[in-house]
Amino acid sequence: MREFKALAIIIAVVGVIYWGVEPLAHSVFHPAKAPADYTFADVKDIQVTLKGNAKAGKTLVEDNCAGCHNTKTPESELKARNADGVMGPDLDTMGYLYAPEFLTAFLKDPLKATLLAQKLKGREDVYQMSSLAGTLDDQQIADIVAYLQSIAPKEMSNREVFVDACSRCHDVKYNGINGLKGIKVATPEKLVKEYLGAPAPDLSTMYRSRGEHYLALFINDPQKMLPGASMPRVGLNQKAEHQVLAYMESIADTKKEERESLGIKLMIFCAIMAVLAYLWKCKIWREVH
């Protein structure tokens, strides 16, 4: 009976620490943040809600965007494409990756939409897209977004979403984009640092070090989680962001399923052994008494 009392005390102490002390400490060190906002309400004043014409948008894209953006670049060519400078992302997947609310705000005022206005104050020309601000009217912006949505694929794999959304600035050294370990798909570190003020970190183990909750909020709004962060807000919609996180989890924790299945088996084994140990203990002490 004394053993059960001791066990009950241990369970009570652990319970108080786990459900009481730990959450309190976490709330102090990590204050609650507002949930991710995929409507980007903070830039609602520059969002465009007009109905766009995809055909007119195609012409506008060809006239205004083709100089910096490709339609589709093979993954194996991304490194060479970025060798001489910071290049714009491919256009064919933008309608899939980015929320239309963000795209319209971005085309109207790139620095405000990406939350870089304050960081780049006085040197706005460093951000190449800043020159676009004010050059398009609302209807033209709506037309461009309509065109981008019309050419977007219906589905993309988690890897494809990650490559298009993240790999221009971030490495994945321990997984190897293109299946080759150590290959750098990112824009050269020197150029990223010059462009945004700091090099972009490798994302190989970022999911394990930061966790899904933090990363979901950070990707949606970097400044909310890390004021002064160099990373711009990229404007991914909820589906694309979840796919990015799923891919980051798959490369950071490749043994997750195996580990979880083994954990269940181990718990069953421990439970069986605990019963056997208790029965053995009862037998021994019965003989003593």
Rank of each mutant, 00 (worst) to 15 (best):
H170F: 12
E249D: 10
L132Y: 10
S250F: 09
D138G: 00
Y214K: 05
G211S: 09
A146P: 05
K193V: 01
N220T: 14
L132C: 02
D202T: 14
D171P: 01
V172T: 12
R159K: 12
G228Y: 09
A133F: 07
A200T: 06
L132V: 06
C169P: 05
I219G: 02
Q223C: 07
C166D: 08
N178K: 15
N220K: 15
S204Q: 06
D137I: 03
E194C: 00
C166T: 11
N237R: 13
Q149D: 10
L217T: 14
S230M: 11
K193H: 00
S209H: 04
V234N: 04
K184Q: 05
H213L: 07
I151A: 03
D138Q: 15
R159P: 00
K184S: 05
A216E: 13
S157D: 07
S204G: 01
K173I: 07
A186G: 07
P199Y: 02
Y214S: 08
E189R: 10
D202N: 14
R159S: 08
R210H: 03
H242L: 09
D138V: 05
G182S: 04
P222H: 03
H170L: 15
A152S: 13
E249L: 10
P201S: 01
M248W: 11
T187D: 04
S167M: 15
S150W: 15
A142E: 15
L215V: 05
S157Y: 07
Q243A: 11
I144P: 12
S209W: 02
S250K: 05
R233N: 03
A229L: 08
L148G: 02
S230Y: 09
R233G: 10
D221E: 15
A146D: 02
G211H: 06
E155H: 06
P188V: 04
M248H: 12
G134I: 00
V185A: 02
E241D: 14
C166I: 09
Y147V: 01
A198N: 11
R210F: 02
K239T: 07
P153D: 06
M248A: 11
E194A: 10
K184T: 04
Q140L: 00
E155C: 01
S250D: 03
K184C: 03
E194W: 08
P153S: 08
M206D: 04
A152L: 07
I219E: 02
A229G: 02
G134W: 05
V161Y: 15
I177D: 04
R159E: 13
T187K: 00
Y174T: 11
M231Y: 07
L236Y: 13
F218M: 03
A246M: 08
Y247W: 12
P188W: 05
E212Y: 06
